[in-house]
């Protein structure tokens, strides 16, 4: 077991005991969840759950208020209620839920907040010089504070990979802790950008650091780097969360992001959460998908279950 020691703001030493990860074993276990066969009512149940766990995301240089508003509408009603009613009415399916959150750049937060007024949907903002994180801490914290002041109630920060890869774990820790403070009451999701870390051992270490430093969620990726979320990476992060919970009693959330595009994948992730963490984690409060494209595929599956037809996107909008 690797031991990394951190000093928190109060000057206390925190010893992080990080168990090693065997990549082949973790991958084998992760792939096991692709073998689960989720059918009928459990499939519908899982698909509804997956939509409610989605963070619809737009993080482009080309984002405009118009684009963000459109996405927010999709977030409220992934399918227009009347359209769904006409198709699924006979089957007595419950209405499609709205998604958990929308995720935008800080400059788009106010637009999103307005667009989602009256809904239960959270507004998440990336911050801390997303996606590279290559900015002075002051800039990162200002970025965070700005997003919060604009109304974001979730902050998706990136860890300092430069510091992490050069072994300056204390700096990584301090930046997360500082960002957490800057968040105030907003929830902090810490993006590890696992595609840049190079090994599952490091994913595990980064997860430990993030949780110790105050993350409410740990998140795999920015979506700007390949590979983004994978089953093995998510499994290792879930196991870190599980161990942290066993030690501290604190439940940390998990968000795989990027690369999850299909309903089938969503169900695989949910099976993994179910069998690794138990049903406690099967809630948007503790599990999210950073997967915008997935929503339509899930809808198609729900429509298929409702009608027996294979569906197309055009019925619900391509947003």
């Amino acid at each position: 077991m690797r031991s990394v020691s951190m000093t928190d703001k109060a000057g206390r030493t925190l010893a992080l005991l990080v168990p090693p990860v065997d990549e082949v074993g973790a991958t084998e276990r992760a792939e096991f969840f692709t073998k689960r066969s989720i059918k009928k009512e459990s499939k519908i149940h899982a698909l509804y759950l997956a939509i409610s766990m989605c963070d619809l995301t737009t993080l482009e240089g080309a984002d405009t208020p118009g684009r963000v508003r459109q996405m927010c509408e999709k977030a409220r009603h992934p399918v227009p209620p009347d359209v769904f009613q006409s198709v699924a009415g006979q089957k007595n399916l419950p209405p499609i839920p709205s998604v958990a959150a929308v995720c935008v750049y800080p400059s788009m937060v106010s637009t999103a907040v307005k667009a989602l007024a009256g809904s239960a949907i959270n507004v998440a903002s990336v911050a801390t010089a997303f996606p590279s994180g290559q900015a002075p801490l002051k800039v990162k914290l200002d970025d965070t504070r700005f997003a919060v002041s604009e109304g974001a109630n979730e902050i998706d920060m990136v860890i300092n990979r430069g510091a992490f890869l050069s072994g300056d774990y204390q700096l990584v820790f301090d930046e997360i802790a500082a960002t957490k403070e800057a968040c105030g009451e907003a929830h902090l999701k810490v993006i590890l950008e696992t595609g840049e870390l190079g090994s599952l051992d490091r994913v595990r270490l980064a997860s430990e650091i993030a949780m110790r430093a105050g993350a409410d969620f740990i998140k795999t990726s920015t979506g700007k780097i390949q590979p983004a979320a994978t089953l093995p990476v998510t499994l290792v992060m879930l196991q870190a969360i599980q161990d942290f919970y066993m030690k501290t009693g604190k439940k940390i959330g998990m968000k795989p992001a990027g690369g999850i595009r299909t309903a089938k994948q969503a169900i695989q992730y949910l099976c993994m959460v179910n069998e690794t963490m138990g049903s406690d984690w099967l809630t948007p409060d503790l599990f999210r998908f950073g997967a915008s494209a997935m929503v339509n595929d899930i809808l198609k599956q729900i429509f298929k279950e409702a009608t027996g037809r294979y569906y197309y996107d055009r019925v619900f909008s391509l947003d």
Binding site: E41, S42, C271, N274, S279, D280, L282, T283, D285
Partner: peptide, 14 residues
């Protein structure tokens, strides 16, 4: 206790 309530995920027979 998450207020939305974590849901039990039963696998239907397949």
């Amino acid at each position: 206790q998450a207020k939305t309530g974590a849901m039990k995920f039963e696998y239907a027979p397949s």
